[in-house]
Write a protein that binds this DNA or RNA. Structure first.
Lengths: 356, 356
DNA sequence: CTTACGCATGTGATCGATCACATTGACGAT
DNA sequence: ATCGTCAATGTGATCGATCACATGCGTAAG
């Protein structure tokens, strides 16, 4: 209703410059609205903030005046006098990856629907300086709250040490410190993936972990290990990657050398690298080697073979992060991860390959 | 230097409340700084905006006072009085895709380095209403300029019809209307890809196009057709997809039925779908069918076979978009696209398969 | 019939910066 | 010796909203 309908602009020239002080390009303010509506500026403000005690007729007069003047409240003035920026800061350390990007988009939409806007600050590196820069930028804008997407432990440490503490939320299940957040149960997701492999009969299962400083990587690794331990299996076949397909390729080769018959990869990209490693070693998937990914990127179904993976509802998680940050009541805990079974997993080979 | 060094906060209690009016949690303002530095508030403002005529000693006094008080300028107040928001709006219609997400990240960094911040408004749908909503949101924040990422023609139309015109930039080479922008020469990129296939000897080449309302799709299609026409070949083997691997799979099947020996896909995801279509039809790549993608997503090198594709420097393009929007002088025209030759292309089969 | 209270509205100060316009002093030109 | 100019700084108004506090008036309680 208050949208900028561009096909408008009819009678504004005739009416607006009653006092012909040259052309005045300045936008309408509360005072202009008040004058047209025949009320005080404060009443206009009350309409804006829908104050309870306002006669319906008055409110309507004001709304009409607003429409007539094509009034739009000035966000800066509002922020200044109310000292509320209605701004949510996103602190991110990634650029262009599927998961974070999806979450950011969902956060933006959710925030906007509540009258908030969103600014992104990317910390280019993991070093303290670049994280501090990003935080500093968000502080300068006096963001009312932060959502930390794809957090590394370093980032959380920096957040804990803020002089002016700002409420913040992470999507990962709350780590060490007693923060808020956690609507992505990645430990559970990892157990789902691992137990799927074990149920198929695999005994020697490897994991390609993400960078150890990432919470997500930590949790997926934990889930993997928990599941193996709960079945008295060896949880030590772990190689570390950096989320990229290239690193997945390398890690998979190492794991294959250790004689694993199945690999749970920390994300789908690394799983793709593992797929290509298998091919390059002449192994078939899932005949010789089973592979499970994590994320369910849209392309996963078109990998060769189609990738079995774990799906998380990232968009929903993003929305809940906003709700949580804004202190809304009904924030249910976690969106359950889901195993998407495709063609990259199967029973282990009858006669295991020699270990070296 | 002005970053939020959290390990601070020493003598502020002793000094700050000379007039003991209870605890005053309010942040320092220009006046506070002025008092401490022994100058007027205007001089402080001059330091902030580095005005030329300021004695070095004075500037230093002010800077010292700022540090002492841990002063940070209030963005809202600044925006209000100067009527400059220092805000760049990103209008996007995508969520989580590689290209747009990469560009957005680069824009954020470039903007921040110039003292601007960035807000994203996603138009969820293509309908006029949701585009208008997004625009309206950015207008409410009085963004000084817009960068349109991944634009469809509808979006451009909406932009043209704005009541309050805001400068905007698209990354694509300026389309029909006389807009600004264009640092991604996608026509050239598409010609590169197509001519690569033709040089290998293919005569019957198909194209999987993105949604027709996307500028990127239009330009890639144009490049494809231009190149074919320039060699007197038939440019009519075109199927339309929606950027997804699934649609690429469908489109590829249709093209294969038409007897093409090579496919240029509008992006890498659809190329992946084409790859899987080839496999599902028992064709080998590149033996029976050559495939070229577009974008060079990080995973492309790990597809089976590794995908030949066109790389664009998206991050650089994002940076230049900011420079262009901010009216900086040295904005060179376009970042050249580059063909990345991998394993998915080769000579056409000796004896072409029957057409049906 | 008054007092009190709450609804509906108005008045002026305020948020923290910049802007427009003084004011001061030094210095070179006339 | 006088004046204009410019560098360096100060004073008060201003941006457009909200906040804190009045005010007028109807109605229920004393």
């Amino acid at each position: 209703m208050t949208s900028a309908t561009p096909t408008h602009g009819d009678n504004q020239t005739m009416d607006a410059d009653r006092d012909n002080e040259e052309a005045r390009p300045r936008a309408a303010s509360v005072f202009d609205v008040a004058r047209v509506a025949g009320v005080s500026h404060q009443t206009v403000s009350r309409v804006l903030n829908d104050h309870p005690s306002l006669r319906a007729a008055t409110r309507q007069k004001v709304l009409d005046a607003m429409r007539e003047l094509n009034y739009r409240p000035n966000a800066a003035a509002r922020a200044l006098s109310s000292s509320r920026s209605r701004l949510i800061g996103i602190l991110s350390t990634s650029s262009g990856e599927y998961g974070p990007a999806t979450i950011v988009a969902a956060i933006g939409a959710a925030a906007r629907s509540r009258g908030y806007s969103v600014t992104i600050a990317n910390a280019d590196g993991l070093d303290r300086r670049s994280v501090d820069d990003a935080l500093s930028h968000l502080a300068d804008l006096s963001a009312e709250g932060l959502i930390v997407v794809a957090p590394q432990t370093q980032v959380l440490v920096a957040l804990e040490g803020l002089t002016i503490p700002v409420p913040y939320v992470t999507l990962q299940t709350a780590a060490a410190s007693g923060l808020h957040g956690g609507m992505l149960d990645q430990i559970r997701g990892a157990r789902l993936a691992t137990s799927h492999l074990l149920d198929l009969g695999h005994q020697r299962v490897g994991h390609i972990a993400g960078p150890p400083e990432w919470l997500d990587a930590q949790q997926r690794l934990t889930g993997f290990q928990e599941e193996l331990r709960s079945r008295q299996l060896d949880p030590r076949f772990v190689e570390i990657g950096d989320w990229s397909a290239a690193s997945g390729h390398r890690a998979a080769r190492a794991l294959i050398e250790h004689g694993v018959t199945a690999i749970f990869s920390g994300n789908d990209q690394m799983a793709l690298g593992a797929l290509s490693a298998a091919v390059s070693l002449g192994l078939t998937v899932p005949g010789d080697l089973s592979i499970v990914g994590f994320d369910d990127v849209p392309e996963a179904a078109y990998y060769q073979p189609a990738l079995t993976t774990v799906r998380q509802d990232l968009a929903e998680a993003g929305r809940r992060a906003v709700a949580l940050l804004l202190g809304e009541a009904d924030v249910r805990p976690a969106v359950g991860p889901e195993l998407i079974e495709r063609a990259s997993t199967g029973a282990p080979p009858e006669r295991p390959r020699p270990e070296y």
